[in-house]
Amino acid sequence: MSSTTNYILGVFDDEDEVLHAVSEVKSKGIKIDEVYTPFPIHGLDTAIGHERTRLPIAAFMFGTLGMICALSLISYTMVFDWPMIIGGKDFFALPNWIPVTFEGTVLFTAFGLVITFCISNNLFPGNNVEPLDLRITDDKFVMAINLDKNKLGQDEITKALKSSGAIEVNVK
C-alpha cells in the first residue's frame, strides 16, 4: 500500500457482520477495495466483486505437464536410450509406469500450484508488508475503501460503514 492514497478502514469484529456490510456498503454505491480477514469467509470474494480464481486451471496444466515429463523421461530411458528386457515384457511397458507417472503428476501439480499461488498473491520471503491493521491476523475484519476511487466523500463513507456495523473507522 503506498502512502499517497487515502484509505478508509472500517473495522468489524464478526465475520457474518462484515459479509453483510459488504453488500450494504456496495448498495450505497461505494466501491470496496478489499476486505482483510483473519480466516477465510465463504462468499466474501464474490460479494466484493472479485473474479473467480483461475488457479484450478493452472493446477490442471501443471499436472498435465508433470504427466508428460514423467512419461517422456521413462519412455526415453526405457525404450530409446538403453532398452533392456525385464521380466519378458515389452520395452514399452506402460502399466508398470503408472506409479511413477502418477507421482510425477502430483509433484508437478503441487509445486506448480503453490508457486503460482505465491506469485499471484505477491508472496515471497523478504516481502515486508505493513499491515493496514495489526489485528487483522488476530480477530478483526477490516474493510478497505480507496477514497480516490470513490465519488463519495470521507464523511459519507464513514457514516455508511458505521451504520452497517463497523466498530471503528480509521483513515490511513
Binding site: T37, L55, P56, T109, A110, V114, F117, N121, N127
Partner: peptide, 23 residues
C-alpha cells in the same frame, strides 16, 4: 511471505488447499 489476509488471497488459498487435498 508478506501475508496480508485479503479476501482475494483467502479465496485463492481455499482453492489451493482444496486442490492440494484432492491430489
Amino acid at each position: 511471505l508478506g501475508w496480508t489476509g485479503s479476501a482475494k488471497t483467502w479465496a485463492r488459498y481455499e482453492y489451493m488447499s482444496l486442490i492440494l487435498a484432492g491430489i
